[in-house]
């Protein structure tokens, strides 16, 4: 072992990292080499001095100053962190916000009819007039004009406007009766009116014979292959009758109604679907 090699092992010897072979080789060299032995003595003393240096103590009040500094910088960071960073705060906030927005959207969609109509698909038929606007026929999706192509030759004079004071026609008979009973708007009737389905046609029937009206109407609907829904056990003055017929049966139904009495179309959709819902108001 050379002197250089021996001195390169001083730190390892100092820290006890030498293998037994290295240690014995180094010890042999140190015994034989006075210079390296002296160097080792100086080296080990140097390290001994370093290890004897005491750990300095922080100045008095240092800990308190650190804590105060941490507290000073804590609150704005803490505020930001609590609002934006920790999941245990952020997730509930986001969930609450999501629920709030969803609830708002649902409320907006459900409550005002305008929102419903704006959000929903176009209604092909006549929307039944709401009870809060008695005497007026809801114009949406309907036209208050003489019958169009399907009823050619119909005298224009018969397509008279519905009197304003006349009660409106509802899509569901029980709802319509409720609507007629109360001219003033009521919350229940508003809800009920919104629940009504649209009629594709609404007309007023002034029957020639009130006694045979019920049976005549029943027979007619049966002949054209339709369904008759009465609002009472027997059709009579003031009744609302809902008739559902195939579209192609409409001319025959119209002809039959005009044999029963004077039938005036009040509102009708521009086009009929396959199954046409017709509301027939029986005049007093």
């Amino acid at each position: 072992m050379s002197c250089h090699e021996a001195r390169e092992l001083f730190s390892a010897k100092m820290d006890g990292f030498l293998t037994p072979a290295e240690r014995s080789a180094l010890d042999r060299h140190l015994q034989a080499c006075a210079d390296c032995s002296r160097e080792w003595q100086r080296f080990s003393r140097t390290v001994g001095l370093l290890r004897a240096v005491p750990e300095a103590r922080a100045p008095a009040g240092f800990g308190r100053r650190v804590l105060e500094a941490a507290t000073r910088e804590r609150w704005p960071r803490r505020l930001l962190r609590r609002v934006f960073v920790p999941l245990h705060v952020k997730l509930p906030l986001e969930a609450a916000a999501l629920i709030a927005v969803s609830t708002l959207v649902i409320l907006l969609y459900r409550q005002p009819p305008e929102f419903q109509r704006a959000a929903g698909p176009p209604v092909p038929g006549v929307t039944a007039p709401a009870a809060e606007s008695p005497g007026k026929v809801a114009p949406y999706g309907a036209r208050q004009e003489p019958e169009a192509a399907m009823e050619k030759g119909q005298p224009a004079g018969k397509e008279e406007a519905v009197p304003a004071e006349r009660p409106s026609v509802g899509g569901r008979t029980d709802v319509s009766r409720e609507a007629r009973k109360s001219a003033a708007p009521a919350p229940e009737s508003k809800v009920a009116a919104r629940a009504q389905g649209p009629f594709h046609l609404v007309g007023l029937l002034r029957a020639t014979s009130r006694e045979t009206l019920d049976s005549q109407l029943g027979d007619l609907v049966k002949q054209v292959g339709g369904i008759l829904v009465r609002d009472a056990d027997r059709v009579g003055p003031g009744s609302i009758v809902e008739v559902i017929i195939p579209r192609e049966a409409y001319p025959r139904l119209l002809a039959g109604l005009r044999q029963i009495g004077d039938f005036t179309v009040e509102t009708r959709a521009k086009a009929f679907p396959d199954q046409v819902r017709i509301g027939i108001r029986i005049a007093n």
Binding site: E55, A56, R57, A58, P59, F62, V66, L67
Partner: peptide, 10 residues
């Protein structure tokens, strides 16, 4: 802070 102040300062 109490545990490490002296060591860090030193």
């Amino acid at each position: 802070v109490l545990a490490y102040q002296h060591r860090v300062f030193s």
